[in-house]
Lab assay of single mutants.
Amino acid sequence: KFGRVHERAEGPAKILAIGTATPFHWVDQSSYPDYYFRVTNSDHLVDLKEKFRRICNRTMISKRHMFLTEEILQKNPNLCSHNEPSFDVRQDILVSEIPKLGKEAVLMAIDEWAQPKSKITHLVFCTRSGVDMPGADYQLIKLLGLSPSVQRVMMYQQGCFAGGTMLRLAKDLAENNKGARVLVVCAESSAIGFRGPSEDHPDNLIAQALFGDGAAALIIGSDPKMGLERPIFEIVTTAQTFVPNGDCHLALHLREMGLTFHCTKDVPPTIAKNVESCLIKAFEPLGISDWNSIFWILHPGGNAIVDQVESTLGLEPNKLQATRNILREYGNLSSACVLFILDEIRKKSGREGLKTSGDGLDLGVLLSFGPGLTIETVVLR
């Protein structure tokens, strides 16, 4: 008597548009150690500064975009301390800036989509910054002038794996609601975790050397309108798992001094060791076991992770080039990073006149991972 209210779509979910945005301000990685130790009044920690310089040199990052300028840091000195309470200051900045950054990426996506924004039916927003109620999803709806009846899902504090999570959720929403057009937004800022150095917490140096700011937005829907919408990728399958006891290797915690970062040297080999089982589960039903026969979007948690995944799986050097390019130009953008790589690989395919948006290949994989050593596996066509 009370059956399904919403009719299912006929076809699989497809990515119809991609937009990205970054803050205008950026830092050069080669000179960042001098800048970082100067603005945090830590130049007296000579040995720690040299250690940080070595870490920065190993990241293979060229530059990173950041909202925090020297002027902002001078006005808010607690942000430059390692342990002073600064959460309220971070909140005041990020509750406002995260939706604005997301808006810039959304406008780029809508411009490519070339359809009225009134056709957006759902919003899925993800960030690890600016936790608030009502959330960044609500603020973004107002900034864009979208209908208050847009169906919203707000996900805070997920971390680097969440780019894949957003695709998984959007696929379910698009395929189970005929005519749905799902706006996916990942907006991230390193301002939540920026803090001064400490000899007692070397993990913090890794975070300060890796993370950048950026937002990515996608429009996802099934059954694209012929002649009006141009699909870029099809989302074939999605899956999530985590490595048992992985939280002892990688975890982040909200504290009075901001978001703290805990990471062990076992993260790269542990991820590399567990990736292939995810690939087998995803691609065995499709008859694929040659990992060089697919295109790759791999989250660059750090250069060591990229190198070890490449080595463990025997990947050809060009397979992870898009990942390395984004890491070099932006650093680790947390949940937004794989979506930047997705954009990079389709643009490169277009520039080179390849037959598909995925490096000329039919199928590919998007792998994202993060806290708890959670792994998201997304098969794309």
Rank of each mutant, 00 (worst) to 15 (best):
K1W: 04
V5W: 04
H6F: 05
H6R: 08
R8M: 08
A9G: 07
E10I: 12
E10K: 08
G11L: 05
K14Y: 02
I15E: 00
L16H: 03
I18G: 00
I18S: 03
I18N: 04
G19H: 05
G19M: 04
G19L: 02
T20M: 00
T20K: 04
T22Q: 09
T22R: 10
F24D: 10
H25T: 11
V27D: 10
V27T: 15
S30Y: 00
Y32P: 00
P33G: 10
D34S: 10
D34L: 10
F37I: 14
F37A: 14
S42V: 00
D43E: 14
L45T: 12
E50S: 10
F52S: 03
R53E: 05
R54F: 00
I55R: 15
M60N: 00
I61D: 10
R64W: 01
R64M: 03
M66Y: 01
T69D: 05
E70R: 07
E71G: 07
L73A: 10
L73E: 07
L79K: 02
S81I: 04
H82L: 06
H82G: 11
E84Q: 13
E84R: 10
E84M: 01
P85H: 05
P85L: 13
D88N: 03
D88H: 09
V89S: 12
L94S: 10
L94D: 02
E97M: 07
I98E: 07
P99T: 11
P99H: 15
M108N: 11
M108E: 10
A109T: 11
E112I: 05
P116A: 04
P116H: 06
K117R: 10
S118G: 13
K119E: 13
I120K: 00
T121P: 02
L123S: 00
V124S: 01
S129C: 15
V131M: 12
V131K: 11
D132V: 13
P134M: 09
G135V: 08
D137Q: 08
Q139V: 08
Q139M: 09
I141L: 06
L143D: 14
L143W: 08
G145R: 02
L146F: 00
L228A: 05
L228K: 08
P231R: 01
F233D: 05
E234T: 12
E234W: 11
A239S: 14
T241K: 12
F242W: 10
F242Y: 13
H249N: 07
L250A: 14
R255S: 12
G258W: 01
L259N: 04
T260Y: 14
F261E: 15
F261Y: 15
H262R: 09
C263Y: 06
C263P: 09
K265M: 06
D266N: 06
V267I: 11
T270C: 12
T270H: 09
A272M: 10
K273A: 09
N274Y: 12
N274E: 13
N274W: 12
V275T: 00
V275R: 01
E276S: 12
S277Y: 03
S277D: 10
S277E: 13
S277W: 14
L279H: 01
I280D: 14
K281F: 05
K281Y: 03
K281C: 04
A282I: 00
F283L: 11
E284H: 05
E284R: 02
P285E: 09
L286D: 06
L286V: 02
S289C: 11
D290V: 04
D290H: 11
W291G: 04
I294V: 14
I294P: 03
W296Q: 08
W296F: 01
W296P: 12
I297H: 06
L298D: 10
P300I: 15
G301Q: 06
G302L: 05
G302V: 08
V306G: 08
D307Y: 06
E310I: 09
E310D: 04
S311N: 09
S311E: 13
T312M: 11
G314K: 02
E316C: 09
K319N: 05
T323K: 08
T323F: 00
N325S: 13
R328S: 05
R328K: 02
G331E: 12
N332R: 10
S334R: 13
C337P: 10
C337A: 14
L339R: 10
L339K: 10
I341Y: 00
D343Q: 00
I345M: 10
R346F: 03
R346D: 05
K348R: 12
K348I: 01
S349I: 02
G350C: 08
R351E: 08
E352A: 07
E352Y: 03
E352D: 08
L354V: 04
L354C: 09
L354T: 05
K355I: 04
S357D: 06
D362H: 01
L363K: 11
L363H: 15
G364A: 02
L366R: 08
L366P: 15
L367R: 15
L367K: 15
G370P: 05
G370L: 14
P371N: 06
P371S: 10
L373Y: 14
I375M: 13
E376F: 00
T377F: 00
V378D: 15
R381E: 07
R381T: 04
